[in-house]
């Protein structure tokens, strides 16, 4: 199956928009991409490399946006979201409540995208901490199709936004982009009956594989891909997951710290749902083990076989008298 890197899909789209929209700036903290070379060359006056300086990346982006620019600020996800968190809070989250600021933070390397580079380059916190910020949009796509669909939204919605992009090429989740509505923020990508896997980002691919495996075992699993972590209409989400007695969240994030698992837990709680919730993600420790992404998942109990076993246990447990 054809795969594509989200950032390349995004940058290709932005390149086309920059040809007709003079207000678009692309600011990088000395971070590149194959697709970025053409943009750097053809729009030299609107491509700015601030150097390895994430704090200044945010501040420069803010200043440009205050003068009416639409800014895409680009860096490695953990450094973008955490090295410069206070700049993001002060100059984007707080200031945008008073003044219009359209800054789109493109964080590349969600979760364990940069698998073998270790805990400094893993990014398991961003979806938790970015969701905390008022006035922010948090976008967590699972494929390049969803990422491309975000471009119009990013131009139209003049607010600060955080894009949590995977660092590696991924296959398509969506053949038809019309299935993706930024306003709804999620999409049912597989219907099921027994258990619903609610996932975001890279884990939606894994959820689809797990659903296939469960099917082999006679268990019907639905998959809901949540690509908008904020804002997200909880009541609308409940309409899609409320029929299930078992729900599992799947994400490359720390769990119990405010990410997708917390969103779903809150949706279930406020709907007085009795559904059983399994949170699949990373516990309260960093990942020092060395290996590729699947190895790291396995070490942390997130490989397909372990997830299938976990869910089967949950389902059979509930069937006992």
């Amino acid at each position: 199956m054809e795969t594509k890197v989200m950032r390349d899909a995004l940058i290709e789209q932005l390149y086309d928009r920059m040809r007709t929209n003079d207000d678009i700036f692309f600011v990088s903290a000395d971070f590149g991409a194959p697709a970025l070379d053409r943009l750097r060359e053809d729009f030299g006056d609107r491509f700015i490399n601030v150097g390895i300086a994430e704090q200044n990346l945010i501040n420069i982006a803010t200043g440009l946006a205050l003068e009416g620019a639409v800014v895409y600020a680009y860096a490695i996800a953990p450094f973008l979201s955490m090295r410069a968190y206070e700049q993001i809070r002060t100059n984007l989250s707080i200031l945008s409540q008073v003044r219009e600021i359209n800054v789109n933070l493109i964080g590349v390397g969600a979760g364990l995208s940069y698998d073998v580079t270790g805990p400094t380059h893993h990014c398991l916190e961003d979806s938790c901490i970015m969701r905390v910020l008022p006035n922010f949009v948090v976008f967590s796509p699972g494929d390049s199709v969803t990422t491309e669909q975000f471009v119009d939204y990013s131009l139209r919605v003049k607010k600060p936004k955080y894009l949590r992009l995977d660092g590696k090429a991924q296959p398509r989740i969506y053949d038809d982009p019309r299935k993706i509505s930024m306003e709804e923020g999620f999409s049912v990508v597989r219907e099921g009956k027994d258990v619903c896997l609610v996932s975001t980002g890279y884990m939606t691919h894994k959820a689809l594989r797990v659903a296939e495996m469960l099917e082999q075992e006679g268990i019907s699993a639905g998959v809901v891909d949540v690509f908008m972590l904020k804002p997200l209409d909880g009541e609308l989400l409940y309409k899609s997951v409320g029929k299930y007695s078992h729900i599992a969240t799947m994400e490359e994030s720390f769990i119990d710290k405010g990410s997708l698992d917390s969103i779903v837990a809150e949706v279930l709680r406020s709907s007085r749902s009795q559904a059983d919730l399994t949170k699949l993600g990373f516990g309260d420790r960093y990942v020092f083990e060395v290996g590729n992404r699947e190895h790291l998942h396995k070490v942390n109990g997130l490989d397909e076989a372990t997830i299938v076993r976990t869910l089967k246990g949950k389902l059979s447990g509930s069937r006992l008298p």
Partner: peptide
Amino acid sequence: CSIPGYETVNGSLGHGLGVACGIAMA
């Protein structure tokens, strides 16, 4: 920044010059 006449948020230090650079560049 909610006070008319103040352009940006600066209750936290070290932000003003960088934001001003973005404005100046624009």
